[in-house]
Design a protein around this nucleic acid. Structure first.
Lengths: 211, 211
DNA sequence: CCAAAAGTGTTCAGTATACACCCATGA
DNA sequence: TCATGGGTGTATACTGAACACTTTTGG
């Protein structure tokens, strides 16, 4: 039997929170050593013959306590291979993203932290988050699986603006983002309008993915 | 001891051949079962604690018989996780690209096949090549490490045209590619001109990377 | 009526694409 | 002098960013 490198799958579980109007990252304190008690990305060791997506779902359900049905989409990011990233020994880390549908969340979930302000995490997880942030920003409005997973089947212009600002750091002009979305195949502006924000303002359009 | 998935690193070793004016992919017949004798991408099992880049270099040197010094650059592509892709059992495949400098090649190298016309390969290696082709095309003129690795420290406009055609399938207008290259930071048009092609024609400019 | 925020229309810069024409070489 | 093929200049379309102005809500 060849002694091979261990493979872990670490997940950036993302959720849009309409209340704080920000994209949040799901993290949880580690149950075991090393770094017991410290916050970390949900991660599991990849089982023999297990698919990356399955392992990512397992990490989200087991480590964050989120039901499988709340995971709306997932996908691959990059691989981290520094041999010293895990004190137990060399472990490959394959990073995946997963989007969480807040409507399917039960009580007592994980810690949700704004993507823009992640606290210190165990292992090299801060580095993973930093390296993957631009990749995630690049997926928005380009990878429909990712975008639809994050925003849900229906969403408003206001939410689209908030998500974009959360991921890219810049708030686009509503007019320009609207035109970007109108050009997107698979997305359409409905005739309906949502309620205006608490501060007032014009009620935003509702957008819907056409399957 | 946890029984974990094996990890292999499979390499798309690329080289530009000025003679045939095409980008070539390095492949070699397999020495062992399964698929003994059949052509395949160079690949090795990732050793414990080994870095992906080191494993990729090992694959190129061991399986293709190319000296380490001929590898001009390398980088990560994607991961393939179908459990049945290796008949010996579930094995993850992390794909990397490596660029080969033809001037450092010794005799008796591997089989070089045009990237546009790859013969049937062992495992799911044809699928890997197909999936990675657009990623490689996307790296050209965007990832300077990749581009410089493929074209070398100095190259002509004619070669740049050939490489672009090989990777994207479309031959750009010389004028437009020239302007694209002029805008590239780190690349400059020298005052020199190379010899004209055998068929005649105007001698192309020589371009050089400024470190 | 005022503040807030989305939507419409328009302008402008930058980029991509296409092509007509010029230039330097080999044969 | 002709074929070949890179180089120069230019025209057109597309894209993104920016902003004036309008519309629709809450207070």
């Amino acid at each position: 039997m060849i002694e091979s490198t261990l493979v872990s799958v670490d997940v950036l579980a993302l959720r849009f929170d309409p209340t704080t109007r920000a994209v949040l990252l799901g993290i949880a304190p580690r149950a075991h050593e090393p770094f017991a008690g410290e916050l970390a990305l949900p991660g599991v060791l990849l089982g023999k013959g297990e698919r990356l997506r399955d392992a990512a779902h397992r990490a989200v359900t087991d480590k964050l306590g989120i039901p499988e049905t709340a995971i709306s989409a997932s996908g691959q990011l990059t691989t981290f291979d520094e041999p010293s990233r895990d004190p137990r020994g060399p472990t490959l880390s394959i990073a995946l993203w997963a989007t969480i549908d807040p409507t399917h969340l039960t009580g007592g979930g994980p810690t949700w932290t704004p993507l823009a302000d992640v606290p210190p995490l165990a292992f090299d997880h801060n580095r993973i988050v930093d390296d993957c942030r631009p990749i995630l920003a690049g997926h928005l409005w380009r990878d429909t699986t990712f975008t639809a997973g994050l925003l849900g089947r229906e969403f408003t212009t206001a939410q689209a603006l908030d998500v974009t600002e959360s991921l890219t750091g810049e708030r686009p002009y509503p007019a320009n983002l609207g035109r970007t979305m109108e050009r997107l195949p698979g997305l359409e502006r409905t005739a309906h309008h949502a309620a205006a924000l608490p501060q007032g303002g014009r009620p935003p359009s509702v957008w819907r993915w056409v399957t």
